[in-house]
C-alpha cells in the first residue's frame, strides 16, 4: 500500500457529472453552422485503491476524452474530478505537478504519442527527470529495468520510436507510465497492438503490480475478454454517458442494458467452427450523433426493446451496485433531471 494513502474512505479517483463539450464552427460563409460535440455528457464514477475499472463502448463514445479530462489534457466543460478528495479542475500547473506523478496515462495511439526526436531511453526516463526521481546512472539502470519489465530488449535503449513495431511502441508507453510509480494509470487501449502472448505478459504484469503496490487502473479497451479478465468493475459507455455499471462478473453473466447485450453478442470467438454458427444482435436504426441533443435515451432509435417513453425521457443511471440507465430493463430508474 502506498504511503500517500491518507484517507481510506475517499476513493482514489472520483468523477462527478463530468462533461466535455467541443464547440465547433462548420459550413461555409453563406451557411455557417455552430454547435457542440457532446463528447462526454455527464458521467460519474469512482475508482478505489487497488481497483480496476474497465471502460468499454462504441468507437467515438467519449472514452479517451474522459481519460484526457481526468488528467486535465482537455478542460472539462463542467463537473468535477477529485484525486484523493482534492478537486483538480482548474488547478495551476505547479499545483498539478504531484498529481501528474500520481496519475499517469498510457495513450491510445502508440505512433503519435511518443516524441519522435527522443530515444527510447529518453522517453522512458523523462518522467524521472521531471519529477526529480532519479539521475545519472540510477536513471539509466531504472530505464533498463523498465524496458525489461515490458519485454523490450534493453539493447534498444538508443533507438528512436520509428525504429520499433507498433506493439513495441505500445510497450514503450507502458514503461514510461510505470516509471514514476503512480497510484493510478489511465490505460487507453494499452494492449491493442500486442499479440495475445505479449498481451498476456503485460496484463499479468499490470495485475501483479496492482497486487504488490495497490495500483489502480482505468482500463479502456475494445477487447471484452481482456476487460473481463483484468477489471473488477466495468462501465459501458454510449454516446458520452454511462449506460451500465456493474462488477465484471455481473455484467458478463447478466447484462441489463440492451446496448451491452448487443456488444457482448458481437464478441468474435477464436474458433472457426463456433464463429460460423454465431448469431450476433445486429443493431439497425440511426446511429446517434454527438452534436445532437437527444431528449430521451440516446440508444432509443437502435434499441430492440424500446418503449414510447424512451424517445422523450432520459433515464438516469441509478446509484446501485449493478446499474443500467434503461427504462425497460432497470427497476427504479429516475428521470435524468440534470441534463439539458
Amino acid at each position: 500500500m502506498s504511503e500517500t494513502q491518507t484517507n481510506t474512505d475517499t476513493p482514489l479517483l472520483s468523477v462527478r457529472d463530468l462533461k466535455v463539450h467541443f464547440p465547433f464552427r462548420r459550413g461555409s460563409l453563406l451557411n455557417p453552422q455552430k454547435g457542440v460535440i457532446r463528447a462526454v455528457d455527464g458521467i460519474s464514477f469512482d475508482i478505489a485503491r487497488g481497483e480496476t475499472l474497465g471502460l468499454v463502448g462504441e468507437s467515438g463514445c467519449g472514452k479517451s476524452t474522459t481519460a484526457r479530462a481526468i488528467i486535465n489534457l482537455v478542460s472539462p466543460t463542467s463537473g468535477d474530478v477529485k484525486v484523493d478528495g482534492v478537486s483538480i479542475a482548474g488547478m495551476s500547473d505547479a499545483a498539478m505537478l504531484p498529481y501528474r506523478r500520481r496519475v499517469q496515462m498510457v495513450f491510445q495511439d502508440p505512433f503519435a504519442s511518443l516524441n519522435p526526436r527522443m530515444t527510447v531511453g529518453g522517453i522512458i526516463g523523462e518522467p524521472l527527470v521531471v519529477h526529480s526521481l532519479a539521475r545519472g546512472r540510477d536513471r539509466k539502470l531504472e530505464v533498463l529495468r523498465l524496458m525489461e519489465l515490458v519485454g523490450l530488449n534493453p539493447r534498444f535503449l538508443n533507438r528512436y520510436p520509428h525504429e520499433f513495431s507498433g506493439g513495441q511502441r505500445q510497450r514503450i508507453g507502458i514503461a514510461r507510465a510505470l516509471a514514476v510509480q503512480p497510484d493510478l494509470i489511465l490505460c487507453d487501449e494499452p494492449v491493442s497492438a500486442l499479440d495475445v502472448s505479449i498481451q498476456a505478459q503485460i496484463i499479468n504484469l499490470l495485475m501483479d503490480l496492482q497486487q504488490k503496490l495497490g495500483l489502480s487502473y482505468l482500463f479502456i479497451a475494445h477487447d471484452l475478454a481482456v476487460v473481463r479478465h483484468i477489471a473488477t468493475r466495468v462501465g459501458v459507455m454510449y454516446l458520452g454517458r454511462i449506460a451500465e455499471l456493474a462488477t465484471a462478473e455481473e455484467l458478463y453473466a447478466g447484462p441489463k442494458h440492451p446496448y451491452t447485450e448487443a456488444l457482448l453478442s458481437a464478441v468474435p470467438v477464436p474458433d472457426p467452427e463456433l464463429a460460423a454458427k454465431r448469431q450476433r444482435i445486429v443493431l439497425s436504426g440511426e446511429v446517434p450523433s454527438p452534436d445532437v441533443y437527444y431528449p430521451g435515451c440516446a440508444f432509443a432509435d437502435r434499441c430492440p426493446v424500446k418503449i414510447e417513453r424512451c424517445l422523450t425521457d432520459r433515464p438516469a443511471l441509478p446509484n446501485k451496485k449493478h446499474a443500467a440507465a434503461c427504462w425497460v430493463r432497470e427497476e427504479d430508474v429516475q428521470l435524468d433531471q440534470r441534463s439539458v
Binding site: S197, Q199, N204, M207, A225, R228, Y252, V267
Partner: peptide, 18 residues
C-alpha cells in the same frame, strides 16, 4: 499463441498463460 488467449469466461485469479 493460441494458449495465451484470454477467455471471455476466464478467471481473474489465475494469471494468463504466456
Amino acid at each position: 499463441l493460441l494458449g495465451s488467449l484470454p477467455n471471455i469466461e476466464s478467471n481473474r485469479d489465475e494469471p494468463l498463460a504466456a
